[in-house]
């Protein structure tokens, strides 16, 4: 019977369940490479109207069911929370790229994880494109 307990303990540790001190590893951890992550989270738009872009980001997030937590026009950031079957937190930043474009980056987290798959971001930018009537360009 003892080895049943051993198997259970090993699996519990592997799953990172409680029982150990919090690991510092999580503070600066990210699953994906920085370049790959930025690629999937960022799009360039052919506009320089930052205020309009930030307002459209807010409107798109509201359309998606987010309640805005905070926004800062100076830094170009918007953060919101969505509560549904999932609890999602989304931060969007807007900054100039050269003299003709704006770079929009979205980063989301769900429960205890950063979302590091391209699918949700593709859907977010598709929604933003519709609100902006502008095409989102993939950033190399």
């Amino acid at each position: 019977m003892k080895w049943h307990a051993v198997v259970a303990a090993v699996v519990l540790c592997a799953a990172g369940l409680p029982g150990c001190a919090p690991s510092n590893e999580q503070i600066l951890a990210s699953e994906e490479s920085q370049v790959k992550l930025r690629g999937m989270q960022t799009r360039a738009f052919d506009t320089t109207d930052r205020n309009k872009m930030l307002r459209t980001v807010i409107a798109t997030m509201q359309d998606l069911g987010f309640v805005i937590d905070s926004a800062d026009e100076g830094l170009g950031t918007v953060t919101g929370t969505k509560v549904s079957s999932h609890m999602l937190r989304l931060t969007v930043t807007v900054r100039p790229r050269g003299t003709t474009q704006l770079l929009v980056r979205a980063s989301a987290q769900h429960a205890l994880h950063a979302i590091e798959e391209p699918g949700p971001y593709q859907n977010f930018f598709a929604s933003l494109e519709k609100s902006l009537f502008l095409t989102a360009h993939q950033v190399d």
Binding site: L64, S84, L88, H110, G119, N123
Partner: peptide, 9 residues
């Protein structure tokens, strides 16, 4: 994230 895709659509 499969179920999350729809959350951002």
């Amino acid at each position: 994230a499969g179920g999350l895709n729809n959350e951002l659509s």
